[in-house]
């Protein structure tokens, strides 16, 4: 092999080694919990520590919404249809906030297991239906899976 060929091969191997180790590191990182995004089940099972700042994503449980008469305080439960987590929030909710709708809340879990949200965002789901279809689906007793929020953020 000519010397310059060997040298070029050396560089290529060097670069390939660097890239493959970095791919390995990324794969390792993916296996670690780094984004602190929790589902209601994970919170309910106590995976999120008390006082830890996390984000929680789920649906607003039907019939759980309560608001104070004289202030902006609201209380509702978020659910992934397995477990629910009560959320307490004080502030203006987005227009799309309604029961059965997906939300993402940021905040902390307090000692009683209530999620103290500092921000609530409506996450509109990826399904589009005309009002008639929606009515028809509801009448037929559609399963919640049709408009269930994905438990993990997209990646």
């Amino acid at each position: 092999m000519k010397p310059h060929r060997r040298k070029r091969l050396g560089i290529i191997l060097f670069i390939a080694a660097g890239l493959s180790v970095s791919v390995g590191l990324i794969l390792y990182a993916m296996s670690q919990n780094i984004d602190l995004f929790y589902t209601p089940t994970q919170v309910a099972e106590g995976e999120a520590e008390v006082g830890q700042r996390i984000r929680i994503g789920g649906m607003v449980k039907e019939g759980s919404y309560e608001s104070a008469e004289d202030s902006l305080q609201v209380r509702f439960e978020t659910t992934d249809y397995v477990n629910s987590v009560p959320i307490y929030f004080e502030g203006i909710l987005p227009d799309l906030f309604r029961e059965g709708q997906g939300i993402v809340a940021e905040g902390t879990v307090d000692a009683e297991g209530i999620f103290q949200a500092s921000r609530v965002l409506a996450k509109h789901d990826e399904n589009y239906m005309s009002q008639e279809v929606k009515a028809a689906l509801d009448a037929a007793g559609a399963t919640p899976e049709n408009h269930q929020l994905s438990p993990q953020p997209e990646s």
Binding site: V21, S22, V23, G24, L25, I26, Y28, A29, S31, Q32, N33, I34, D35, L36, E49, Q52, R53, I54
Partner: peptide, 16 residues
């Protein structure tokens, strides 16, 4: 907040 440190170090190491 309790996330895995090694995960982040791996990402930074991968970028490096």
């Amino acid at each position: 907040n309790g996330a895995s440190l090694s995960g982040f170090l791996a990402i930074l190491g991968a970028m490096l």
